Lab assay of single mutants.
Amino acid sequence: EFSMMFKHFDKDKSGRLNHQEFKSCLRSLGYDLPMVEEGEPDPEFEAILDTVDPNRDGHVSLQEYMAFMISRE
């Protein structure tokens, strides 16, 4: 189920989600993330990124995504 969600939000089929795609994916899974303006701080989402994209390369791989989802179950 999680990998299907990942593929759905991987719009460019790159095998990874940019942070915006990842945020959309989390919202569709029921995460209550506040709407913030582009460039505004988003501490809740930043905290999630610290876990799922610790190297802050700007992308979430399928492996990082799956590890995050399994840790939340």
Rank of each mutant, 00 (worst) to 15 (best):
R27D: 06
S28P: 01
V60G: 00
I48K: 01
V36H: 10
E44T: 11
D12A: 15
K13L: 08
A67T: 12
F45R: 00
H19A: 02
M69I: 08
P34T: 09
D32P: 13
M35W: 11
E38F: 09
N18L: 05
D42S: 09
G39N: 13
E64S: 15
L49T: 02
D57M: 13
E73Y: 15
E1A: 05
G39P: 06
P34Q: 09
V60C: 02
M69K: 03
E44I: 12
E21G: 10
E37K: 15
V36Y: 12
F22V: 04
D53M: 01
L29W: 06
N18E: 03
L33D: 04
D57Y: 11
D53K: 04
C25L: 12
H19C: 03
N18C: 05
N18M: 03
D32K: 14
L29I: 10
V60L: 04
E73V: 08
A67H: 10
E40M: 14
S14P: 08
R56E: 05
V36W: 08
R56S: 05
P43N: 13
D53P: 00
F6C: 04
E38L: 11
E46C: 05
A47G: 11
I70E: 14
L33R: 03
F68T: 04
E38D: 14
E37G: 13
D12P: 03
E21K: 05
R27Q: 14
K13E: 15
S71G: 12
E64C: 08
R72D: 05
Y65P: 01
I48C: 04
F68N: 05
N55P: 05
V36C: 10
E37D: 14
P34Y: 03
L62N: 05
M69T: 08
S28C: 12
V52I: 06
E38H: 14
D50P: 00
P41L: 13
P41G: 11
P43K: 12
I48Y: 05
V60I: 13
S61I: 05
D32S: 11
D32Q: 13
E64V: 08
Y65Q: 02
A67C: 08
I48D: 01
E73R: 11
Y65M: 07
E73D: 15
D10V: 15
